[in-house]
């Protein structure tokens, strides 16, 4: 079923549309979430959160900005990321971070760095870019990256090491 057909179905009948959407995209959502959250229970909780978020946010999806799968990937990834951060905070007994408010200068700086990162990533080789996104966007473990790309773990580790060195150099270390 195409994205347009799914959305039309969702508009006509939310329950049925949501069911169809989840049937089609559950493997993708679980794939993205399981890369970030290795704990099965965490992943299951996150999947439920994402399902709920979809119910609430799907009306806001704009097909002209990209495909449904890319949008769902971003939602699932960010939800899993938040879930992971919350878990890490709980483990370290840290209080929940208040939503950060950046000053105008900080905002400009953040945008500049984002641009710089975008340029650097754009200049990576195709394989390096794939590894980079799998590692830092999908947060996949090295074993999974290696298996899916048909590489040995050592090869992926080596490439990631060189990649980090390069990014550190070009982006200016931990302050990036």
């Amino acid at each position: 079923m195409t994205d347009a057909e799914l959305l039309r179905q969702f508009v006509q009948n939310r329950d049925q549309g949501m069911e169809l959407l989840l049937r089609q995209f559950t493997p993708l959502l679980r794939y993205v979430i399981s890369g970030v959250l290795r704990d099965t229970q965490d992943a299951e909780d996150c999947f439920s959160e994402v399902s709920l978020a979809l119910w609430q946010k799907l009306d806001g999806f704009d097909p002209e900005k990209g495909s449904l799968s890319a949008w769902l990937t971003a939602i699932a990834r960010n939800a899993a990321m938040n879930h992971l951060k919350a878990r890490l905070r709980r483990e370290k007994h840290q209080p929940e971070e208040p939503p950060g408010v950046l000053t105008p200068e900080q905002e400009v700086l953040r945008r500049e760095r984002a641009e710089q990162l975008r340029d650097t990533v754009a200049n990576l080789s195709d394989l390096d870019r794939k590894i980079f996104y799998r590692r830092y966007y999908y947060l996949q473990p090295i074993g999974q990256i290696a298996a899916e790309l048909g590489l040995s773990q050592r090869a992926v580790e080596g490439r990631l090491y060189r990649l980090r060195q390069r990014l550190r150099q070009e982006l200016g270390g931990d302050d990036a």
Partner: peptide, 21 residues
């Protein structure tokens, strides 16, 4: 920092399509 920064720099459609075993 990289992982956080990428929340605002999602991969291209092509990359998203390619990330599957």
């Amino acid at each position: 920092t990289l992982a956080t920064a990428l929340s605002e720099l999602p991969p291209s459609e092509e990359t998203v399509r390619d990330v599957t075993p």
